[in-house]
Structure formats: structure tokens, C-alpha cells
Amino acid sequence: MALLEIKDLHASIGDVDILKGINLTINKGEVHAIMGPNGSGKSTLSYVLSGRDGYDVTQGDILLDGESILEMEADERARAGMFLAFQYPVELPGVGGMSFLRGAINARRREEGLDEIDNLEFVKMVREKAKGLGVKDEMLKRAVNVGFSGGEKKRYEILQMAMLEPSMAILDETDSGLDVDALKIVSEGVNALRGDDIGMMVITHYQRLLDHIVPDHVHILAGGKILKSGDKNLALEVEKTGYSSFIDAA
């Protein structure tokens, strides 16, 4: 069943058009990779999908589980199951990591009419998931992302994803900044979350990540449009020939 439907999506910032008619459907259980040159609009797409302020959707629609989410704020979309692992995770000085995670989980639980999560249960859950992703206990105690290395920030994004159990996850260059071993650990973490109930959009520049997280579909985004779609072999082709052949062909 269609989980996310992006229909002829046009979006701009100020008077700059960035997304120029994107069509894409992600079904439950599928992983779609998005590749494309720098500045092609990949992060913009991830922000527009997750409801960041400052973007004007000038045309088209975004449906999550069959319902338009255009009028929903970022927090409502998140509680409806959307999750964005940021390309550049944001440091929040003064915001304790544990209370941040707990706040996010409880926001969701409140929406579902559940009581706040039991504190012991919560701590146990964080510890367990953090361990699997190689996130050190000591990092959990710090302010959100403050003083984390680039790779640590990326692991922390996936930890949040594991805690929030989204139905639609967008991973924006989660591989950048990760060393070879970390890439493996994080990919395993992501793969563990794959399943029939979740759809994923994995934005990356490198085939390397897709060796670990094998996509069902690959799309090439350039100039705010999807120029070509294919299976995982398309990523191999990109790796060999670069984007120019696709852009020239379009």
C-alpha cells in the first residue's frame, strides 16, 4: 500500500524555485535511494516532506497514508510517523539528551492517548538501543549533539529513529562522516528497522552505503526533478559514469 505519495511537488524558498515537479511513491516495506549532484534539492525535499517552515509548496501534494500532510506542522507530521535523520544534526546547548528523547517519545504517546513512558523502562530502552549503535552512555548524558563528532551525530540520529519507530524515515546522507566500521554498524541499525510497516528514503552520494542498505528503487534527482528511476543497478551506473550522462539525456 502507498505510504508516501509525492505528487507533482513544486517548492520554493523566497522566490527561488528548488523542487520543480517531483513524483514519487513509496510503499510500505520499500527502501528508495535518492542520489543526485550537490545542490540538486535532496535536502530540500527532505525538509519539505518533514514540514520545515520557510518553504512554499507552490504546486502538488504530499500524502502520508493517503492523507495530505501539507497543512500539518512538522511536529504533527512527526507524530503521524515521519522521521528525518538530518544531514547536519543540530546542536542544542543546554538541552539534555535524555530529556529530549523522553520528550519526543512522550509527545507521541500523548497523541496516542498513552501515559508517559515509565522512566526505568525508558532508560533501559535507550541504553539497549544505544549499545547496539555504538552510542556511548556518556554521550547520552550530554546536551543534544553538543561536542559529538560528525560520526557520533549520525549514530545519534539513528538512535532517535530507533526510539521513535517511524513509519516513514528519511535518511539524509547518514553515511557522510562515518568511518568504515561505523558505516557498517549504522547500516545494520537501519536494516534492523526495515520491515513491512516502514518506508525509507535514503539520500546518499555513495554506492558504498547502498551495499549495506540495499534499496528497492533508486532515483536520480537533479535540478529539482527526478530524471531517472531504476533498481539498485542504477546506483552502480552512477558510480561509474557520474551524473552528467543523465543530465545530458534529460
Partner: peptide, 15 residues
């Protein structure tokens, strides 16, 4: 900071 606000709200925390 709008970036800070977006990061928090993107995790489901109301504005």
C-alpha cells in the same frame, strides 16, 4: 534559532 526549533519539532515535540 529556527534550526533548533525545527530539530525539536521534527521529533514530534509541539512548538
Amino acid at each position: 534559532d529556527d534550526n533548533h526549533l525545527f530539530y525539536l519539532t521534527s521529533r514530534g515535540i509541539p512548538k
